[in-house]
Design a protein around this nucleic acid. Structure first.
Lengths: 362, 362
DNA sequence: AGCACGTTTGGAAACGTTTCCACAAGGGGG
DNA sequence: CCCCCTTGTGGAAACGTTTCCAAACGTGCT
């Protein structure tokens, strides 16, 4: 009856390759599965699973045995198998235009660590300001079955964005919004920060202020300029009190405009993009102009680390990226839970630093 | 024979819930599976799979029908199911100490887009310089069954790093290396860049140079200082030609040391950390010192965007993050393929800018 | 003593793939 | 004409989970 050439039933075949794997350390010892845990604990597969997922219907002894087995094996659940079964991944995707932009890096950091607290894995993707890369990342994330998406959309609509809109996958936009996709968004209201800046400048004695705008075709670019206009209307009613420069990102021509406005009596500048603020900072100092006290005041959107490292430190209008992050996460969670939350705006605010000071006497 | 109460074979049961899903648009229409594709194409599941994975054993007609069906359904493969079956994910994890550090942001960007080209998904995780977060991210990535890992390790060993070392999962370290984990690494050799900097300074007439070092307990911090010593030995043999400051990241006390060295006749400073270079830039200008031509020359490790925006633009020693990225990817791919590649060093090089100039006359 | 009930358990199905296996169809060479 | 080989196909198993279902096992009540 017992055939000596085939292994008898008394030999547990739980880890058949255990011995040979030991002989050569090239072969990666296969990761233990829940089946191994169950076998070692002497319980069924279902019981092991229930213990490890904290299902209430488990006995104390089963819990103890399974936990011990899992620990001694170094068992780690296979998330891909789990989510195949549960059709939930507890993962979301985040797509930013460029992770090298410090604002987006901060946003990503905040969102990811927010997720870490909530047990949600955040897959960060950076599209390098390229719609094709954005779509490619979107497609992969969908194939990865993420539960939802947080997107900082590039300028225009793309095939994948349309698909997102039409499909029912939960997603929110953050920072920038795109009217065409009817998704809830969380973005920053530039007015409070701009208003505070203009008001502070006026109270310090400034009478003529330049606004350097950029990306004027994006929602944020437009709204920041609009906010400057509104604040100016309310606080500096004089007709020639406000000057506006439209500055591209890759051409320094606008610096000449800025110089001539300053020569004409402007004593302060507000920048819609931190990049321009830094560029002007260097340029103005180089030209021998005083920045800060008794000189030209500078205020910039977005609060970069380097702003407080410079001398004088540059005043910022912050969009509170941590708040954007946490609201976006909350909204996305709500959507994944089945709700349809409304859009949200975060107030910007002013962070006064040395570059915000009195104009030259007289 | 034909029973009218059960659906005849002519009625395709491919998407049974199609109609009811249409009635209420709250219910997210379930994503089509390969089964739906096969049904619509009128072939078996296996055939559909073979077509979609470009298996050679498929007929032209099958390919045509399956492709058409997949297209019309908008079918996208479920990567989690696929990798459960194939035990490959075509995804790797990347862990950086802090994504807000522009150097790491650039590294991450390069690695991710490198992966995009190779069909590899790169999951980026930032540990905020916190070993616990690093380990937490490592654990999740392992549970996600990534094929491999690229790690910029924090200072010391941690439980998960030990597990990585002992387990057979392919991983490489980049930028920083940690002797304890015997993993192949790709990092930058600071000497060529530092040597070029010191040589250029000497040729311009500088005779006394300060080195501002940081993170001296990390491999990079140590090696950069060592490189400065070596370059100085070769190029500036005078005993008092070189001064060294150990600067912490969060305390500005070192600025006083810098001032006093400059007062003592030093005319140039090399910074091991870009943060310190920026801090000094602001401080020195504020103190009324000339930077650049006929003033104090500044050279900093890592090439930040803002360096070229400032005036004068700051000279950098670049570690060529794109090269680090592509070598790391290549090495990891090799490891995943079963090889055991050796470590690699990338030469740093000098990017001269305006802050590298002649010292004051006399 | 019997019965209903609550707790815990094992077994099996299912998630969406890929891939092995066996077989059918067709074609060419003996 | 038969056999063999190639090519393409369908069916089924398997990957590692969770969860449904039914059964086993006490326990407390009548």
């Amino acid at each position: 009856m017992t055939n000596p050439t085939e292994p008898g039933p008394t030999v547990p075949t739980g880890s058949p390759q255990g011995i040979e794997a030991q002989s050569t350390n090239r072969a990666p010892r296969a990761r233990p599965t829940i089946k191994d845990v169950a076998a070692l604990a002497g319980v069924s597969l279902g019981t092991a699973s229930r213990v490890l997922t904290n299902h209430p219907a488990t006995s104390a002894t089963a819990r103890e045995k399974v936990r011990a087995a899992a620990l001694s094996l170094g068992y780690q659940v296979n998330l891909r198998a789990r989510s195949l079964r549960t059709s939930r991944t507890n993962a979301i995707g985040l797509i930013v235009p460029d992770i090298r932009n410090p604002f987006f890096a901060g946003l990503a950091q905040s969102i990811q660590s927010e997720g870490l607290d909530d047990g949600i894995t955040v897959f960060i993707a950076s599209s390098q300001e390229d719609p094709d890369q954005q779509d490619q990342h979107l497609r992969t994330l969908l194939k990865e079955q993420v539960d939802g998406l947080i997107v900082v959309p590039l300028g225009g609509m793309t095939p994948m964005l349309e698909q997102l809109r039409d499909q029912q996958i939960p997603f929110v936009t953050v920072d920038r919004t795109l009217d065409e996709l009817k998704a809830p968004s969380v973005d920053a209201d530039p007015l409070p920060g701009v208003y505070a800046a203009v008001e502070a400048l006026r109270n310090l004695g400034h009478r003529r202020i330049v606004y350097v705008g950029s990306l004027l075709d994006s929602s944020t670019g437009r709204e920041r300029l609009l906010a400057f206009d509104n604040a100016g209307d309310a606080l500096l009613p004089g007709g020639d009190a406000r000057m506006v420069i439209a500055a591209p990102l890759d051409d320094d021509g606008w610096l000449r405009e800025l110089d001539s406005f300053l020569d004409d009596g402007a004593t302060a500048a507000i920048f819609g993009h931190s990049r321009h603020a830094l560029r002007a900072f260097g340029h103005l100092r180089d030209a021998g102009r005083v920045i800060g006290d008794r000189g030209v005041s500078l205020v910039s959107f977005d609060d970069l680390d380097v702003f407080s490292l410079l001398t004088p430190a540059i005043t910022a209008i912050t969009q509170h990226p941590e708040q954007l992050a946490s609201r976006a996460m909350a909204m996305l969670s709500a959507m994944i839970g089945g709700d349809r939350p409304g859009s949200v705006r975060i107030e910007t605010s002013l962070i006064p630093r040395e570059s915000l000071a009195a104009p030259p006497a007289g």
